[in-house]
Design a protein around this nucleic acid. Structure first.
Length: 256
DNA sequence: ATGGTCGGCAACCGA
């Protein structure tokens, strides 16, 4: 089975790239973040025409997540929280025997701000939710844009960004508890070398071509899945080189 | 050097 994640930075603006990628790669599941569209305006038809089911949770202008799957998902949960401060950052489903959680972790703006504190609490709440509702001995994928790089090899200029948002010890301390519980970073399992990124800053000209990026998107898998992972790669559409697109596809293949 | 560029959506906010 093939699973992928992609921060779209607008599912409507990136629709040609997503559609072509689905037609070419035919993944079983594609999780997307930053769809930036209200549910009433979500472009359902292009995905159904391509042979996919789509589950989505959006809001006006910001955030929004979706799970695009060949098999219709079950056990759909569209909120991390029961309360009403939901920001359309979470979807969990079950696809066959595999549980999938798709997240768009708050970006955090800057260390020391309320937004940074919210990011830390959101990540902690996600970890708590996983511990309370899942078993590391069962097949679970937690994928998406975590907005945190863990190691110096995951950032193009670690000295410049050390202690800044996205590369701060408080964020990293929480994210390290995910593998402590039993979730394996399957890209890192297959690729020990640094310099492989999934995000590039719009404001750096030609950042992708210049390899000035961050690895902040992850496919995390519990042991029963991680031990079946055969290949994990970062995939770039040619159009992303000409017009930056924020993130690239991250793809993991599992052989059962 | 404290900028730069996107997308949504209608003035800036978020990344």
């Amino acid at each position: 089975m093939k699973f992928a994640t992609f921060n779209t930075n607008s599912v409507r603006a990136r629709l040609p790239i997503i559609k072509d990628w689905l037609d070419r790669e035919r993944p079983d599941v594609l999780c997307v973040q930053e769809t930036k569209v209200q549910d009433k305006d979500f472009p359902v038809d292009p995905f159904e025409e391509a042979g996919y089911h789509v589950i989505f949770k959006g809001q006006k202008s910001y955030n929004g997540v979706a799970i695009i799957s060949r098999i219709p998902p079950d056990d759909i949960l569209l909120n991390l929280y029961d309360k009403e401060d939901e920001q359309a950052r979470f979807i969990s489903v079950r696809i066959g025997d595999i549980s999938v959680i798709n997240v768009y972790v708050p970006q955090g703006f800057a260390v020391g701000t309320d937004k940074f504190a919210y990011k830390l609490s959101w990540l902690n709440d996600l970890l708590k939710h996983i511990k309370e509702n899942y078993d590391p001995a069962q097949p679970l994928l937690v994928v998406g844009d975590f907005n945190v790089a863990l190691e110096p090899i995951d950032v193009f200029d670690p000295e410049k960004f050390r202690g800044e948002v996205g590369f701060h010890p408080d964020e990293q301390a929480i994210l390290r508890q995910f593998p402590d519980w039993g979730l394996v970073d399957v890209f890192r399992k297959h690729e020990p070398a640094g310099g492989h990124y999934t995000f590039w800053d719009y404001m750096i000209p030609n950042a992708l071509k210049r390899k000035m990026g961050w690895r902040i998107d992850y496919i995390l898998a519990t042991a029963p899945l991680a031990e079946k992972s055969a290949r994990v790669r970062i995939d770039t559409d040619a159009r992303m080189l000409e017009k930056p697109s924020d993130h690239t596809f991250l793809v993991a293949e599992f052989h059962f």
